[in-house]
Protein backbone atom coordinates (compact mmCIF):
# COMPACT_ATOMS: atom_id res chain seq x y z
CA UNK A 1 0.00 0.00 0.00
CA UNK A 2 1.33 3.40 -0.93
CA UNK A 3 0.46 6.51 1.01
CA UNK A 4 1.24 9.89 -0.43
CA UNK A 5 2.08 11.69 2.80
CA UNK A 6 2.63 11.38 6.53
CA UNK A 7 -0.80 12.88 7.01
CA UNK A 8 -2.43 9.92 5.32
CA UNK A 9 -0.51 7.71 7.71
CA UNK A 10 -2.13 9.40 10.70
CA UNK A 11 -5.55 8.89 9.15
CA UNK A 12 -4.70 5.24 8.77
CA UNK A 13 -3.57 5.08 12.42
CA UNK A 14 -6.95 6.41 13.48
CA UNK A 15 -8.75 3.78 11.39
CA UNK A 16 -6.63 1.01 12.87
CA UNK A 17 -7.34 2.21 16.38
CA UNK A 18 -11.08 2.47 15.68
CA UNK A 19 -10.99 -1.09 14.41
CA UNK A 20 -9.81 -2.14 17.87
CA UNK A 21 -6.17 -2.77 17.04
CA UNK A 22 -3.38 -1.79 19.43
CA UNK A 23 -1.53 1.02 17.65
CA UNK A 24 1.71 2.93 18.18
CA UNK A 25 2.91 6.02 16.33
CA UNK A 26 6.65 6.54 15.83
CA UNK A 27 7.75 10.06 14.89
CA UNK A 28 11.15 11.39 13.86
CA UNK A 29 11.68 14.21 16.38
CA UNK A 30 15.32 15.13 15.76
CA UNK A 31 17.92 14.56 13.06
CA UNK A 32 21.63 15.33 12.96
CA UNK A 33 23.75 15.27 9.83
CA UNK A 34 22.34 13.58 6.79
CA UNK A 35 19.13 11.77 7.65
CA UNK A 36 16.89 10.03 5.16
CA UNK A 37 13.54 11.21 6.54
CA UNK A 38 12.71 14.68 7.88
CA UNK A 39 11.53 15.58 11.38
CA UNK A 40 7.84 14.84 11.65
CA UNK A 41 7.92 11.65 9.55
CA UNK A 42 5.74 8.88 10.92
CA UNK A 43 5.73 5.14 11.13
CA UNK A 44 2.54 3.55 12.40
CA UNK A 45 2.67 0.07 13.92
CA UNK A 46 -0.04 -2.30 15.13
CA UNK A 47 0.15 -5.00 17.79
CA UNK A 48 0.87 -7.68 15.20
CA UNK A 49 3.82 -5.80 13.78
CA UNK A 50 2.10 -4.48 10.65
CA UNK A 51 3.46 -1.06 9.79
CA UNK A 52 3.00 1.87 7.41
CA UNK A 53 5.19 4.85 6.58
CA UNK A 54 8.86 5.25 7.44
CA UNK A 55 11.22 7.00 9.80
CA UNK A 56 14.39 6.18 7.86
CA UNK A 57 15.30 4.73 4.54
CA UNK A 58 14.48 1.35 6.02
CA UNK A 59 17.59 1.02 8.21
CA UNK A 60 15.97 1.20 11.63
CA UNK A 61 12.33 0.34 10.98
CA UNK A 62 12.82 -3.23 12.23
CA UNK A 63 14.03 -2.04 15.63
CA UNK A 64 11.37 0.65 15.86
CA UNK A 65 8.67 -1.94 15.18
CA UNK A 66 10.08 -4.22 17.90
CA UNK A 67 10.16 -1.34 20.40
CA UNK A 68 6.68 -0.27 19.34
CA UNK A 69 5.31 -3.68 20.30
CA UNK A 70 6.59 -3.05 23.85
CA UNK A 71 5.06 0.42 23.81
CA UNK A 72 1.70 -1.05 22.76
CA UNK A 73 2.01 -3.66 25.51
CA UNK A 74 2.84 -1.34 28.42
CA UNK A 75 1.51 2.00 27.15
CA UNK A 76 4.72 3.87 28.02
CA UNK A 77 6.27 6.13 25.38
CA UNK A 78 9.94 5.71 24.46
CA UNK A 79 12.55 7.95 22.90
CA UNK A 80 14.96 5.99 20.68
CA UNK A 81 18.20 7.26 19.20
CA UNK A 82 19.98 5.77 16.23
CA UNK A 83 23.35 6.67 14.80
CA UNK A 84 26.55 5.16 13.51
CA UNK A 85 28.54 5.83 16.64
CA UNK A 86 29.41 2.26 17.55
CA UNK A 87 30.19 -1.24 16.28
CA UNK A 88 26.61 -2.43 16.37
CA UNK A 89 25.64 0.46 14.19
CA UNK A 90 25.45 -1.61 11.06
CA UNK A 91 22.74 -3.66 12.65
CA UNK A 92 20.43 -0.91 13.79
CA UNK A 93 22.19 2.14 12.47
CA UNK A 94 22.05 4.48 9.57
CA UNK A 95 24.45 3.72 6.76
CA UNK A 96 24.20 7.32 5.58
CA UNK A 97 26.15 8.54 8.62
CA UNK A 98 23.35 10.56 10.15
CA UNK A 99 21.71 10.30 13.51
CA UNK A 100 18.02 10.38 14.35
CA UNK A 101 15.79 10.40 17.42
CA UNK A 102 12.44 8.64 17.17
CA UNK A 103 9.60 9.06 19.67
CA UNK A 104 7.28 6.07 19.96
CA UNK A 105 3.90 6.42 21.67
CA UNK A 106 0.78 4.35 21.97
CA UNK A 107 -2.61 5.57 20.77
CA UNK A 108 -4.57 5.59 24.03
CA UNK A 109 -8.31 5.13 24.20
Amino acid sequence: MTLSSDDDILSEAEKWHQAGRGVAIATVVETWGSAPRPVGSHLVIDEEGHFLGSVSGGCVEGTVVTEALDVIADGKPRLLEFGVADETAWQVGLSCGGKIAVYVEKVLS
Partner: peptide
Amino acid sequence: MKADYLARLNQ
Protein backbone atom coordinates in the same frame (compact mmCIF):
# COMPACT_ATOMS: atom_id res chain seq x y z
CA MET B 1 -1.20 10.02 22.18
CA LYS B 2 -4.82 10.16 23.17
CA ALA B 3 -7.09 8.81 20.45
CA ASP B 4 -9.01 12.08 20.75
CA TYR B 5 -5.88 14.08 19.79
CA LEU B 6 -5.24 11.80 16.82
CA ALA B 7 -8.83 12.32 15.68
CA ARG B 8 -8.50 16.09 16.08
CA LEU B 9 -5.26 16.16 14.09
CA ASN B 10 -6.95 14.29 11.27
CA GLN B 11 -10.12 16.35 11.42
